[in-house]
Simulated scan of single mutants.
Amino acid sequence: MNTQNNQSTEDKRPTHTLYASQTIDGKEVKVRVGVAWKHKKGDGLNIALDNLVAFANKKSDDTAETE
């Protein structure tokens, strides 16, 4: 059994989960969009995005266009 191989497989697991969130009708909606790993050298993270989420912006009454 190769201990180094088993350890490298474990190191590949994400250390963080990434979410996009938005408040819609008073409720917070979270969507998982990816994962991140700590760099082996130095500070920072490597990220892998699964999804791109776009939330529609509602126009408020004072910024609504008038015709």
Score class of each variant (00 low, 15 high):
16 H>V: 11
63 T>N: 12
10 E>M: 13
26 G>S: 04
57 N>T: 07
60 S>H: 02
53 V>L: 04
67 E>Q: 08
63 T>M: 09
52 L>H: 07
37 W>D: 02
53 V>A: 02
21 S>F: 06
65 E>N: 10
50 D>W: 10
62 D>K: 12
53 V>F: 00
55 F>K: 04
66 T>V: 11
37 W>Y: 12
48 A>Q: 14
39 H>K: 13
50 D>I: 06
28 E>L: 10
51 N>Y: 03
27 K>C: 03
31 V>S: 02
13 R>E: 14
15 T>Y: 14
48 A>S: 13
29 V>G: 03
5 N>F: 06
32 R>I: 08
57 N>E: 10
17 T>F: 15
23 T>A: 10
53 V>G: 06
67 E>F: 06
33 V>E: 05
32 R>C: 13
3 T>P: 12
20 A>Y: 00
47 I>Y: 08
55 F>N: 03
43 D>P: 05
57 N>G: 02
14 P>R: 00
8 S>Y: 15
26 G>D: 07
60 S>Y: 02
51 N>P: 05
47 I>R: 06
51 N>L: 02
32 R>Y: 03
47 I>C: 10
24 I>F: 06
6 N>A: 12
57 N>D: 09
3 T>E: 14
17 T>D: 15
55 F>D: 04
65 E>A: 11
48 A>N: 13
40 K>V: 04
56 A>W: 00
50 D>V: 07
34 G>V: 01
65 E>T: 05
41 K>A: 05
50 D>R: 09
21 S>G: 09
64 A>K: 13
43 D>S: 09
15 T>S: 15
58 K>R: 04
31 V>G: 00
53 V>H: 00
22 Q>E: 14
16 H>G: 13
29 V>H: 04
